[in-house]
Simulated scan of single mutants.
Amino acid sequence: MKKIILLTSILACAAFAAPYDKCVACHGANGEKAAMGKSKVLSDMSKADIVSSLKGYQDGTYGGPMKGLMKGQVTGLSDADINAIAEKVGK
């Protein structure tokens, strides 16, 4: 029973985390890193370019070497989540 409660708590925290939190590990706290040395630096991109890129990753029309990885990262993002990410790090 304790394991179920713990797992439920962890999943609830993940569900309510800020949309950008999952991006930080690769892109940096402020989008200042080229993820795995392959991506664009998010903080150098316009908000519109970030939105377009994330939606392109979702529908498979955008991306280079990290396309497969990124599709998995953005699949569950809503339009509001995508806009929040762009507002946080885009210029």
Rank of each mutant, 00 (worst) to 15 (best):
G28R: 02
K2Q: 12
D49I: 08
N30K: 13
N83W: 01
N30A: 10
D49N: 14
D81Q: 14
L42S: 06
L77A: 03
S78D: 06
A86Y: 02
A29Y: 08
K40F: 09
G60E: 04
M1S: 11
L69R: 13
V51K: 01
C26R: 01
S46L: 09
G64V: 11
L69P: 02
D81F: 14
L11I: 11
I4V: 12
P65W: 07
K67C: 07
C23S: 07
A34R: 11
A14Q: 14
M45Y: 08
S9T: 13
L54T: 05
A25S: 15
A34G: 03
A15Q: 12
A86C: 05
G64D: 14
Q73L: 10
L11H: 03
S9N: 03
G28D: 02
K40M: 09
A12I: 13
G76C: 03
N30Y: 06
C23G: 06
I82L: 14
K3N: 06
G56A: 00
G60K: 02
G31F: 03
T8F: 14
Q58P: 05
Y62N: 12
T8K: 06
V74A: 00
G31E: 04
V24M: 04
S9Y: 04
I5T: 08
E87K: 11
G28K: 03
D79L: 01
I82G: 07
D44V: 04
G90D: 05
K33T: 03
N30L: 05
M36K: 12
P65M: 13
K40E: 13
H27P: 10
S52N: 13
M36T: 10
A48L: 08
V51Y: 00
G68Y: 05
D49L: 08
A35E: 01
A34V: 07
L7Y: 02
A80D: 15
S43Q: 15
V24H: 00
G28I: 04
I5M: 12
A48S: 15
E32V: 11
A17L: 06
A35T: 05
I10W: 05
G60W: 01
A86S: 05
N83F: 00
G90I: 10
S78L: 08
G76W: 07
A15P: 03
K88S: 11
G63W: 02
A18K: 13
Y20K: 13
I10Y: 06
L42H: 03
K38N: 12
L6V: 15
V41S: 08
L77G: 03
I50Y: 00
S52V: 07
S39E: 11
A48Q: 15
I85W: 00
A29S: 12
L7F: 07
S53E: 09
A29M: 11
M66C: 08
T61L: 08
D59R: 04
S78A: 04
M45C: 09
C26N: 00
D59G: 06
S78Q: 06
Q58Y: 01
Y57F: 15
I5W: 10
A25I: 11
K55W: 06
K38L: 12
L7P: 00
P65A: 14
M1Y: 06
G63T: 03
A18E: 14
S46V: 12
L11C: 10
E32A: 10
Q73M: 13
F16Y: 15
S39C: 09
K33E: 04
S46C: 11
K33N: 09
G72I: 08
G64Q: 13
